[in-house]
Structure formats: structure tokens, C-alpha cells
Computed example of a mutant assay.
Amino acid sequence: MLKKVSTFTFLLLILTSLLTSCEPGGDDGPQANGGNFGWGASGLSIEKVKSKMNNVPAIITKPSSTDGGIYISRTQHYEEPACHGRPAFWSDHFEIAADSDSIPRSILQKIVAMAEVNLEMFAGHLNLNNTDLITVAFGGRIGICVLNRTSSHGSGHGSALVISAYNSNADNGFSYEYTLHKHELMHILDSQFNHNEHGFNVTPGWWVEGLAELSSGAPILSAKQWASYHNKYAPSRNIIADGQAESGSYNAYPLYTTIVAYLQSQGLGPSAFKLFIQKDRWHGLDTIDTSPCPSDRVFTGACVAPANVMNNFEYQFNDILNSSTSPLSSYGEFETNYYNLVLNWLQNR
């Protein structure tokens, strides 16, 4: 996991991104966004993005005095274990390791540079410092595990990003790779915003992926596309009430992106968003199961937040709504009428 608009919308946006960022399969293959690099990158060309990356200092070897210099298990986080016990490297805000000696250090540097630039862009968009976006990451750095594979793959949960070494071999090259990384980093930051060190589901799927997509530059649908996509991927389902479309595939992501963009338009701007994401809603839920996810990475009860998480989401939504100038009256109104609300907004943009 999204754009800029009113107070209430932005707050809401962040809430949902927490819930889906814990999806077990990761985000293999989100669509490239046609050159829009998302939050904090307005007007930037590929060349300017690459120039920013070139200015990121070189990674350093993790000191042997810290964890023996190796990348160790974040036991409270859903994470690919392939990099555990591998030599690790540091940048200012990230710790990176590869699952294979065949991945050159230059690839690790490129991936870290993308991460540092995206972190700075997100912070700038929200008028925050980079470190404000990292609240519970292990050792104060977000982990990155790089897999030796040529297929496109990315996932982000809790405090760890897992990414393929050669995503640039995918269609659309650098643009695809960069925006994929930005999408996954938003999942992590969404957990960090809410002091969620586990990456468990605590917000609806449409919110999680909609926020990650919108913030990484994905386009919103036209009114005609909205009706067509909804009829195809959620013909008999209320996306908001049920948490996602009938098809949970990447094909439904444009629906989620458009819903989140609509919410932004209803009164949620960066300032309100900033206040909202810094609220610690996670630890106020006393029935959360803090057990790690099963070692086989199958998501069962230990990885699913209780019902009061969603009750809390709705409460926060209404609380933000009440203090905004949004024309929405309540979460209930949004849940019941979101299809027509979004359609009317798209028709009148």
C-alpha cells in the first residue's frame, strides 16, 4: 500500500492498511503504475528518482558486536526465514541480508537505496521525520530479506520486507521494481505507524492494499471502470462489510485504490493523517494473541486479530469523521452506500 485530500479520509486510509499487510502469500506481481511514483514523488522522472538513489550512502557491514553481525530471526514478525543467520548490512534505517552469496552487494545497495528514498518520500508527504515512521522495528531498523530469484515477488509485514533480487527483470523494468518496493514498504510503515510489531491483521484487506497501491502511485478507476470492475470482482459482495472483493486477487486492487482515494477526498489530508497514524491503537486491544505465526507460515488463529480490532477501526473512523468537515455521516453510511458514493464522486470529479 494511496493521495491527498481531506482530514477524515487520510486517517481512515491508514487504518485499513494494517489488516491486509499480513497476507501470507505476499504481493507477487502488483501492476506497474505507468510512471507515477506515488507519495512524495510528484513530478519526479525516473532519472530524478535514480539520482536520489545514487545519493544514498553505501551500506556498511553490520558490526559483529550486534547479533554477531548476522541477520537474526524477528520471532514476533511474519517473515521469510531464508536470510536468518546470513551476513547483514546496515543503512541508516534498514538492515539487509541475502539468502545467497550469489547476490552481489551492488544489488543489496540498490534495494536499500530504493527503501531509503521511499521512506524519505513517505515522511515528506506526511511532514514527518524518517525516524517518526519507525516505532517498533527490531533494533531500530526495518529488515529486508533479499531472495535469489528472478521472478517478481514482494511482501511486507510488521518490521520486515522480503523482496526478489531481480525484480527489474520483470515487465516495465525499473518503474515496476521501484513501485513494487514502495507498495511493500507502505505495508510495513502502516504497521509501524500503529506500533504493531507483529504484522497481524488489524485492518480490512481493502484498506491495506488500497493504501499501499495509492501511496505507491497506482491510478484510480474512472466511473465506467468502477462499475465494470465491481461487477466483475464483487458482483454479489459488499467490499467494505466483507473486507475485500470476492476475488482477493491483484485484479481487485484498483477497486481498493479507488475506495481509499475517495476517502481521502472526503476530508482527510496529510495533517490529519499524521495525527491518526501516530495513535497507538494496537496495544489498547487487550485480547490480541501475541504468539508468533506458526513456523510453517500458515495463518491460523495465532495470526488473526480478534473482533474488537474491527470494532476499534470503526470507532476511530467515526471519531475522525466527527472532527472533520466530511460530508459522510458515519462508518455505517460508508459501509452501506460506498458503491454509489464512490461512483457519484468519480462521475463528478
Rank of each mutant, 00 (worst) to 15 (best):
26 G>E: 03
28 D>V: 06
32 A>C: 11
34 G>Y: 10
35 G>C: 07
38 G>H: 00
39 W>L: 05
42 S>Y: 01
43 G>S: 14
44 L>G: 07
47 E>D: 13
48 K>Y: 10
49 V>C: 07
50 K>I: 11
55 N>S: 15
55 N>A: 14
57 P>R: 06
59 I>Y: 05
60 I>C: 12
65 S>L: 11
65 S>T: 15
66 T>A: 10
68 G>F: 15
72 I>C: 09
76 Q>E: 12
76 Q>M: 13
81 P>D: 06
84 H>A: 06
84 H>W: 11
87 P>A: 10
88 A>P: 12
89 F>S: 13
89 F>C: 13
90 W>Y: 11
91 S>A: 03
91 S>W: 00
92 D>Y: 01
92 D>T: 02
94 F>M: 02
95 E>I: 10
98 A>W: 00
100 S>V: 06
101 D>S: 13
104 P>N: 02
104 P>S: 05
106 S>H: 04
106 S>L: 02
106 S>E: 10
107 I>A: 04
108 L>Y: 00
108 L>G: 08
111 I>V: 03
113 A>N: 00
114 M>V: 04
115 A>W: 00
116 E>H: 00
116 E>Y: 00
116 E>A: 00
118 N>S: 10
118 N>V: 02
119 L>W: 03
120 E>Q: 08
121 M>T: 02
124 G>L: 01
127 N>Y: 12
129 N>D: 06
129 N>A: 09
132 D>M: 14
134 I>A: 03
136 V>M: 08
137 A>F: 15
139 G>D: 06
139 G>H: 02
